[in-house]
Design a protein around this nucleic acid. Structure first.
Length: 412
RNA sequence: CGGGGUGUCGUAUACCGGUAGUACGACUGGUUUGGGACCAGUUAGACGGAGUUCGAUUCUCCGCACCCCGACCA
């Protein structure tokens, strides 16, 4: 995409009403637009990055056998009343209609997915099944905060699985945990699996996936020598204690952000919503259900928080909105422009996603904008590129400059 | 939801109970052109309502919005 065609612009100053680094940078760089507290629109660059994250999540969910669907986010009130959540879940948005019918906005989808699964999985032969979607969620938070990390409308991948036995559930649960860890790893993050409470809807222990970041909302205790990690709210150990798992190190406290969770729901929802399958002997049974959430927009915010420097966003290559940021550093030199235009065309023809800064502004402004936008690789075309010194490629994360021939650049 | 705070051009800010200023942006023209360059001109603003006052953007109250701390985070 040519930057002259990109409808957003960068801003020099952060908005006064944002304190969170993720929101300040994403707004300055034109990724998102704030609509109101806790609600953001995703603009060209923001949507590209969000889609990169969603694609990683989708690949991993598909790989473990998940089937993607798209459920309604405007829900009938009945299933919410059947499970008791209509009264109990205080973050549930409830909508009055002029038809005097009441609706809920989806804050999670157990109430919707369970009846769907019930319809299509009447037999043990249909199980296990794992269904997921990637879409918007709505939660009536008392206080939105931390930019895109805790909003009232946000993007989430939510998967639900149904099993005939606890053993089969446990097996699948472990597979999902591993997939989650791969997702974070592919986003450049190191996540810790943390034991936490199951919340008010499950007596069982749940697992949270935590990334250490100063913008986090949770305090965790973790071991640097092994993968032991526990949320402070349920911890039976304290900072400085010997790691109860490996006994090789002491526990450290960290501020972390939750980027996913998995719950063993047991048969609570199938029971409340009347989902029974027939087992081998023809007896009606409730399936064991699990749910697996992963906040995609929150993950985007955490990535910004984790890698940004004083110049702007630094995306890991895997989620950058474009593969290359091509900058023509001498926009008034016809030869440079011709060269950069041709390189843009060739890269694009090769299928590379390129943001081409073809604007008629000084190079300094382009570099500043490029730093702010945070694309991993910057290709700079100046007079020396034509002079045969090779094409300058700058890594956003380190500032390291390397020289490549045109052929190598097109080949990689 | 408890507590605290803030609302001024598109953005960031200043001043003031008596003509609302600056910077950035945008627009026009010119000089520049590898780190947000420069010159000239133009554009554009007091959250809403009520009150106090000769006069309110300024003071008071109500509402709304936004931010922060806490609580909450199925």
């Amino acid at each position: 995409m040519r930057q002259t065609a990109l409808f957003t612009k960068t801003r020099r100053e952060a908005p006064a009403d944002e304190v969170a680094k993720n929101a300040q940078l994403l707004i300055r760089a034109g990724y998102v637009h704030k609509e109101m507290a806790g609600v953001y629109s995703y603009l060209s660059l923001g949507l590209r990055t969000l889609r990169k994250i969603e694609d990683i999540v989708r690949e991993e969910m598909d790989a473990l056998g998940g089937q993607e669907i798209r459920m309604a986010t405007l829900h009938p009130s009945e299933p919410w009343r059947q499970t008791g959540a209509w009264e109990q879940v205080d973050v549930l948005f409830k909508i009055d209609s002029r038809t005097e019918k009441e609706y809920a906005l989806g804050q999670s989808e157990e109430e919707i997915v369970t009846p769907i699964a019930s319809e299509y999985a009447p037999s043990y032969k249909d199980l296990p099944v794992a269904i997921y979607q990637i879409g918007q969620k709505y939660r009536d938070e008392l206080r939105a905060k931390s930019g895109i990390m805790r909003g009232r409308e946000f993007g989430m991948k939510d998967m639900y699985s149904f099993h005939t036995t606890q053993e089969d559930f446990d097996r699948f649960y472990e597979i999902v945990k591993q997939a989650y860890l791969r997702i974070y790893s592919r986003c450049g993050l190191v996540a810790k699996v943390t034991e936490a409470s199951g919340g008010s809807f499950s007596q069982k222990i749940s697992y949270e996936f935590m990334v250490l970041t100063d913008a986090g909302e949770d305090t965790i205790l973790y071991c640097e020598a092994c993968d032991y990690c526990v949320n402070l709210e349920v911890a039976k150990v304290k900072e400085g204690d010997e790691c109860p798992k490996c006994r090789k190190s002491t526990l450290k406290t960290g501020i972390a952000s939750e980027v996913g969770n998995v719950f063993d729901l047991g048969d609570r929802y199938p029971r409340a919503l009347g989902f029974m399958y027939k087992d081998e002997e023809g007896r009606a049974q409730y399936p064991i259900m699990g749910c697996y959430g992963l906040g995609t927009t929150r993950l985007m915010g955490v990535i910004v928080q984790a890698f940004a420097d004083d110049k702007g966003i630094v995306w890991p290559e895997s989620v950058a909105p474009f593969q290359y940021h091509l900058v023509s550093a001498a926009p008034n030199d016809p030869e440079v422009v011709r060269y950069a235009d041709a390189l843009y065309d060739d890269l694009t023809k090769k299928g590379r996603a390129v943001l081409y800064d073809d604007r008629d502004v000084r190079a300094g402004e382009k570099f500043a904008d490029s730093d702010l936008i945070g694309i991993s690789h910057r290709i700079v075309i100046g007079k020396d590129a034509i002079g045969g010194k090779g094409i300058e490629v700058v890594a956003r994360s380190t500032g390291t400059v390397s020289r490549m021939t045109r052929e190598d650049l097109l080949a990689t």
